[in-house]
């Protein structure tokens, strides 16, 4: 049983690796974005008292580069119209005939897509950013344990993200038209994940909302572990929270999927 999900994962993964030119264009775009963002923050920090800020400029710079490099790990919606079309055109019927669990099947598919496109994109950005002159350079993590914790939390964050995004796909069973609601959910979710500005720079009242939601565990948390902004002990307990979120989200997602499938009306055609 596990093998079929594994081979689907491999298939999708290799498929994603084929789009190298698109990835190159993406890298160039992300690189430019990163530079622009850093210049903006530099300008903000130039006149401010850096010590009184919750994050230092090098930490912000590192945060931005990681964000650009792992963009496909943190975007809630990753250009995948295929699953939407399955539902709206009625081809979902074929998927239902397969002797596999639909939730796991889709989960593996989405996970593989994100992993392959991140693999293509992250190393050129990270290497480039590494060699940039100060203040644009990516600073390495303070020690080896921070790096290890970063990798663990990043991967867990990815799993949490995919399980959040599953809800978007499940919602299409009810709404049939993904665009409107999806757009709003994306915008809010990505803001709360620290995509627009890093979470520590948000006002306190907003941070209080952010910490009780799962979004920040996908991006903000691993990135700050990398730069050492979140210490060793806090990182360990954070990883526990990530695990709890992951389990809850997957259980809820499976439940929602089952509910949706009992009332699914296959669109003809």
């Amino acid at each position: 049983m596990m093998r079929s999900y594994g081979s689907l994962f491999r298939l999708r993964f290799n498929n994603g690796l084929q789009y190298r030119t698109a990835a190159l264009a993406g890298v160039a775009t992300q690189f430019f974005w990163g530079m622009i963002l850093i210049m903006v923050y530099r300008a903000f920090y130039a006149m401010a008292d850096g010590a009184s800020m919750p994050m230092s400029l090098p930490q912000i710079v590192t945060y931005i580069w990681l964000q650009q490099a792992f963009l496909t790990f943190i975007m809630l919606w990753h250009r995948d119209n295929e699953l939407f079309q399955l539902i709206t055109t009625g081809n979902i019927a074929y998927e239902l005939c397969r002797p596999t669990d639909l939730y796991t099947f889709w989960y593996a598919k989405l996970l593989a897509q994100r992993l392959s496109s991140a693999l293509l994109r992250c190393s050129p950005i990270l290497i480039f950013a590494w060699f940039l002159p100060s203040p644009y350079e990516l600073s390495p993590p303070p020690d080896l344990s921070a790096l290890i914790l970063f990798v663990v939390s990043l991967l867990l964050g990815l799993l949490v993200l995919v399980s959040i995004s599953m809800f978007i796909y499940i919602s299409v069973f009810y709404t049939m038209s993904p665009v409107g609601s999806l757009l709003m959910f994306n915008v809010v979710g990505e803001f709360l994940a620290g995509m627009v500005i890093p979470v520590p720079l948000m006002p306190d009242w907003l941070q209080r909302i952010v910490v009780v939601l799962p979004f920040r565990w996908t991006a903000d948390f691993p990135f700050r572990v990398f730069s050492g902004h979140i210490g060793y002990h806090e990182a360990l307990s954070g990883i526990m929270v990530q695990l709890v979120w992951l389990i809850c989200l997957i259980l809820l997602g499976k439940l929602a999927m089952r509910r949706a499938l009992t009332r699914v009306v296959v669109q003809g055609g």
Binding site: F44, Y45, A46, M47, L201
Partner: peptide
Amino acid sequence: FLFERFGQLQ
């Protein structure tokens, strides 16, 4: 929010 925290931008 950035302006709220930093006050001004150059």
